[in-house]
Nucleic acid binder design. Structure first.
Lengths: 183, 183
DNA sequence: CCGTGCATGTAATTCGTTACATGATTCC
DNA sequence: GGAATCATGTAACGAATTACATGCACGG
């Protein structure tokens, strides 16, 4: 049982490598140049993470000598790596993630269609909608009861957070509609 | 020059202690029970952070013996602590923060009225609006150009992120209007 | 007397950040 | 020949997570 967690960065790397085997440098550029910029593109984060994945048997690197450039290693997933990626993607969105780790949920969902198929994506969205529908009202209640005694900027800051969750809830509905229309 | 950074958690603690001196336990409960739950309420995070602040001369603890409970330390800000808090709050929202560290911006803004006054809050919102107005279109462009080749769930995930920024932009306008009305 | 809440802490481990270091190639 | 880009790494440090440990007080 290789039940050790690989961390969020590790899973992000697995997801990207599933789509196409890449070098560490190519992965860094994805983090630097696309909206996946939540992750740092620093070599001190990426290369050790890639090494951990390889050491855990989840990826394997192939040394490319062909191009005239400096030796460059292209990583691809092993069967164990694919298993780990699927295990992670199959996790339903937890309450805790919905409340404080939205980034991780977005990342999981982004990979979902390709790796798990549309029906998994729909199930994920339905579960997410359920959780948000339960959470948003409790935040609104907090704001209604505690907001009056708060300074304006503090109240507005909380309001901004609540609006974020409400927007995400609205988004799940539109996303579900998009999957409906596809069929 | 005590120019060492105290970290996001450190600044959150300074802000809370400015409002009212508290024990570590009381601070933990704030993180556990209010929407400030982005921060962990684990003792392994809070107590070492409080100790760092005290060691840096930013806070001082007073041992309370009065209550029958176990000895309990109530921390309050020193003048240096207030200076550090104000220095942090005076930072304008950077592009990088707008893109990837929204939490920190929200936290700064939440404390702003009390510590820096309304005009600082308004300035902060104006700067934030400027940055968001510049950033959102570039994200929309990315989505328009790269979105077509992406799997549906990936495109929707990016869309969710963009919507978040758009919601925040809308919020800055309403927040500015709220300050206008107050005058 | 046992669980729950108040209250504070430490140790091991893991991970990210910052900064530094190296080396090849291409373009000007 | 020097800058920019491709490409990979390490070392020192800081900080969070998890898990454990302690101890008082109160209600049932």
């Amino acid at each position: 049982m290789t039940q050790r967690a690989v961390g969020l960065l590790g899973n992000a790397l697995l997801g990207l490598l599933y789509q196409n085997p890449s070098s560490g440098y190519a992965l860094r550029r994805v983090f630097a140049l696309t909206p996946m910029s939540v992750f740092s593109d620093s070599p001190g984060a990426i290369y050790p993470a890639l090494r951990r994945l390889a050491k855990g048997g989840l990826t394997r690197g192939r040394l490319e000598k062909s191009s005239g450039l400096r030796r460059r290693q292209v990583f691809h997933l092993t069967p164990a790596g694919i298993r780990e990626l699927k295990r992670w993607l199959a996790l339903p969105p937890s309450r805790d993630e919905v409340m404080r780790r939205t980034e991780e949920l977005s990342l999981r969902f982004a990979f979902m269609d390709q790796v798990m198929g549309k029906s998994a994506s729909v199930q994920f969205l339905q579960a997410l909608e359920r959780e948000l529908k339960a959470y948003v009202p409790s935040l609104r209640e907090y704001l209604a009861s505690a907001g009056n005694q708060m300074p304006l900027s503090a109240r507005l800051a909380v309001e901004s957070g609540v609006r974020g969750y409400e927007t995400r809830l609205q988004w799940t509905r539109e996303a579900l509609a998009a999957y409906e229309k596809k069929k």
